[in-house]
Amino acid sequence: MTRPGKMIRLVVETFFKKPATTLYPFKKVEMPANFRGKIIFKPHLCIGCQMCMKDCPSGAIKITKLPNKKFECEISLAKCIYCAQCVDSCPKKALESTKEFELAVLDRKNLKAVFSDDTKETSPE
């Protein structure tokens, strides 16, 4: 039962193996297809029912009405817990999860995403 050097085979094997870790910041990590990352908003689909606001567990999402039946969405990236309940709650699929997860910023003012135009997302900088 007690044979010294029993692990030696495993130790030698380990020398010829690749490291189990990845060089993360240099080598990007790919998230699975249905990862719940940063939420994006498609203003042309929104009907302003505010179901996402009602269901958000952390109050991170704010829909405001603009003229011409358009809606603006502001998501606080600090408050958001990335549960994607808003994506499930939206009856028109105006919200969507992305694979983006590297959301750290140096200034807390930048921790929000504002979506008001169909084409681009504005970030207060």
Partner: peptide, 20 residues
């Protein structure tokens, strides 16, 4: 992560079933 969309806090449950 592949099944639920996150490594921890899977968020798979909802009242009345599962989400994914």
């Amino acid at each position: 992560a592949e099944l639920t969309g996150n490594r921890v806090n899977y968020g798979i449950n909802t009242i009345g079933g599962v989400r994914r």
